[in-house]
Amino acid sequence: MSLEKYKQEVKKILSEYSIKERALLPCLHIAQEKCGYLTEEIISFLAQELGLPKVEVYSVVTFYSMFSLEKQGEYVIRICVSLPCYLKGSGKILEAVKEELNIEAYQTTADKKFTIEPVSCLGLCDKAPAIMVNRDIYGGLTPQQAKNIIKEYKKIK
């Protein structure tokens, strides 16, 4: 999304808020989803538009795990590592995905296609071990199945 278009979206969101600061999270969500990260430009723009110090916007961005300052892959692979998934072998799932993509946790592949994010419980514990690829949910996985899922995403151009 172009910055111009983003600015229009922000204006639309702000029109629903009487106190502008309250709109920070919704504005950040859109940018994160559309651009894959929060650029210096976006942060400066939001600080100005919402009347917040830039450092405040930065501190909010870094507080929440769904926001990032570095460009994330087109597909964010969230691998749950909380206890119920751990009991069902999430450690091996994480290893399998790392191996398939040849990167470590929290890293992004060189082609900017995949990011691996170990995360806390996703509320899918009845399907443990569970992962999410962007919005899609996969549960009850074996390490091989996890690799196969990644292979399918690799095929998408």
């Binding site: 909380s82 206890l83 119920p84 419980c121 509320g123 514990c125």
Partner: peptide
Amino acid sequence: DEGEPGTF
């Protein structure tokens, strides 16, 4: 916000 591990 359901975030407690094991709650779904």
